[in-house]
Design a protein around this nucleic acid. Structure first.
Lengths: 126, 126
DNA sequence: ATAAAAACTAACCTAAACGTAAGTATCCAA
DNA sequence: TTGGATACTTACGTTTAGGTTAGTTTTTAT
């Protein structure tokens, strides 16, 4: 990793992985992806009942950014009242195994990490 | 994923993977991990020259949280002026392969994602 | 007496993320 | 004519992440 690359990757816009992590690193995206993976196709309000603690606004924002990145496909049925369905794209499917690896790693290490955090708080005392 | 689990994992504090992603999802953590992986052992100012665009404050904050999570080991040498060395722990080493997978996935898909974003902007027009 | 060196910390500020509550559009059924 | 159904949007307010600049500590070298 030379200085050129480092300078470039320090810039969030130009760093591929930051472009991706800025999305899956936010509060709701992962949960939406995992629920859609399990349920395959869901309407807006169905997603909302699965993830009851998300606000309508944040669900809307999250779905929009997933759709913009081509990770979720949105289908509108011209009805009244409206019907809109959401499902994962192949691109999202290819990302999900990596996410599951992260989930597994986290589950494996979370207890030790929490212990480390407590210990750190104790020794740094304040 | 039943309702109980979902309710639990909607809470950031109790969700293992959110506990992890909240850290690696922030602006500087990944870069610090990757530089330390390559260089193995670095002092504070050495890290700062490798990642020149980070402020001292954010480098300090980032290293502290990595240390708290047991991902970075900090060694103080009782000298004047002080000498402090940082290096990755085994826990961090076990996480790095997953991070590299994410980096690879991002590099593979970033162009298509950026194209999707542009297209989305066009069709949603405003 | 002053400065230099390393590794920070403190005080302050801004912008972005996130949350809450209410409103919008459309048609149909009562 | 009112209300319900669905999928949102808008207009706020609050919280958190991150940035900037200056200051702190300690001892040795000048």
């Amino acid at each position: 990793m030379d200085q050129e690359i480092l300078k470039k990757y320090s810039n969030v816009d130009e760093c591929p992985v930051r472009n991706v992590l800025d999305r899956i690193g936010n509060k709701w995206t992962l949960l939406v992806l995992l629920v859609l993976e399990e349920q395959q196709v869901l309407r807006f309000n169905e997603l909302h009942t699965y993830i009851s603690t998300i606000s309508q606004k944040m669900l809307s924002v999250t779905l929009k950014s997933l759709e913009a990145d081509g990770l979720v496909k949105r289908t509108i049925y011209p009805q009244v009242p409206p019907k809109v369905e959401y499902e994962l794209t192949a691109r999202a499917q290819s990302l999900l195994p990596l996410i599951h690896n992260l989930v597994d790693w986290s589950k494996t290490h979370i207890n030790a990490i929490k212990t480390s955090r407590k210990h750190y708080e104790l020794v740094t005392r304040k």
